[in-house]
Computed example of a mutant assay.
Amino acid sequence: MPAEPGTVRPGGRTARVRAAVLRAAGDVLAEQGFAHLDLADVARRAEVGKTTVYRRWGSVTGLVADLLADMAEQSLHRTQTGSVLGDLRANADLVQRTLADPRQGALFRAVIAAAACDARTAEALRRFYDVRIAEWAPCVEEGVVRGELPSGTDAAAVVRAVSAPLYYALLTTGTPPGPAAADRAARAAFAAAAAGVYVTGEGHREQDT
């Protein structure tokens, strides 16, 4: 069965072409939004033949899916500070800096808007966040082992709780959240987790007894 367009990880010249095309696609998204993303325009910006772009990615949504996959691969690894709160603050700081970056913040707004009305973009965005949550979930799991958080704490839910208010602030105000908002989000998620708000399954039943 042939691979879906944009999913094969190439090397050599093909890798350089992919990098140039993805960079150009990200630029268009950041500058003009999803509605203006056009494969021919991306090919022109990347100085790549249109045939190459159409053959490799097939569609705008295929290109966006590959861009998100690349962004997930290039994202920074989690920070280990030795405490759950320290790790969650590091995560919140990373999200805040990303959303405050002129290019990255605009790019995420464009992709989130597209995901609201395009199923393939929505799935690609979910995969992106699945990768990022899986990267940071161990900081919560390790906190459970150290006794900082109750047994049964849903690590993924805690990580989502850190970034959720930051994205909400960006999308509802149009203004990127600042460092104070990042610190507040991390402290709120930690306090809720320490109080057992994110305990599920067997751990939740143990808390009730």
Rank of each mutant, 00 (worst) to 15 (best):
Phe108Lys: 05
Leu22Val: 11
Ala90Lys: 00
Val64Gln: 00
Gly11Thr: 15
Arg127Thr: 13
Ala161Gln: 08
Val60Gln: 06
Ala134His: 00
Thr7Tyr: 06
Ala43Leu: 04
Val158Ser: 00
Glu73Trp: 05
Arg16Val: 15
Ala182Ile: 03
Ser59Phe: 02
Glu135Cys: 05
Thr172Lys: 01
Gly12Phe: 14
Asp93Ser: 09
Gly12Ile: 14
Gly143Glu: 03
Leu37Trp: 09
Ala161Asp: 15
Ala106Pro: 01
Trp136Gly: 05
Ala114Cys: 09
Ala46Asp: 02
Gly178Val: 12
Asp130Asn: 09
Arg44Met: 11
Asp101Cys: 12
Tyr129Trp: 15
Gln96Leu: 03
Glu4Asp: 10
Gly6Cys: 03
Glu47Tyr: 11
Arg56Met: 10
Ala191Val: 10
Gln32Phe: 07
Met71Gln: 12
Tyr198Trp: 15
Ala25Arg: 06
Arg184Lys: 06
Glu142Phe: 03
Val60Arg: 04
Leu99Asn: 00
Arg97Trp: 05
Arg9Gly: 07
Ala90Arg: 02
Val8Trp: 10
Ala164Gly: 10
His204Tyr: 13
Pro179Arg: 08
Leu85Thr: 10
Pro179Thr: 06
Arg146Lys: 14
Gly201Leu: 09
Ala137Gly: 01
Ala92Gly: 09
Asp66Leu: 03
Glu4Ala: 12
Gln32Asn: 12
Val197Pro: 02
Arg56Tyr: 10
Ala157Arg: 11
Leu37His: 07
Glu142Asp: 10
Cys139Leu: 03
Leu125Phe: 14
Ala137Cys: 02
Ala106Arg: 00
Val17Ala: 08
Met1His: 07
Asp41Cys: 06
Val84Thr: 08
Pro165Ala: 02
Ala164Tyr: 04
Arg120His: 15
Ala189Gln: 02
Arg9Asn: 05
Leu37Gln: 07
Arg89Gly: 14
Val64Cys: 02
Lys50Met: 13
Arg184Glu: 15
Arg187His: 13
Asp41Tyr: 06
Ala186His: 09
Ala188Met: 08
Pro179Lys: 13
Leu76Glu: 13
Gly86Leu: 08
Thr14Glu: 04
Phe128Met: 15
Leu88Ile: 12
Gly6Glu: 10
Arg127Gln: 15
Ala65Met: 08
Arg97Thr: 14
Thr79Lys: 00
Ala181Lys: 00
Ala65Arg: 01
Ala122Trp: 02
Thr61Phe: 05
Glu142Tyr: 04
Gln74Cys: 13
Ala100Glu: 11
Trp57Met: 11
Pro177His: 03
Pro138Ile: 11
Thr200Pro: 08
Ala115Arg: 01
Ala193Thr: 08
Pro165Glu: 00
Arg103Tyr: 04
Gly174Phe: 09
His36Ala: 15
Met1Glu: 06
Ala69Phe: 05
Arg109Thr: 05
Val84Tyr: 01
Thr14Lys: 07
Glu4Leu: 11
Arg103Pro: 00
Ala92Trp: 01
Pro165Tyr: 01
Glu202Val: 15
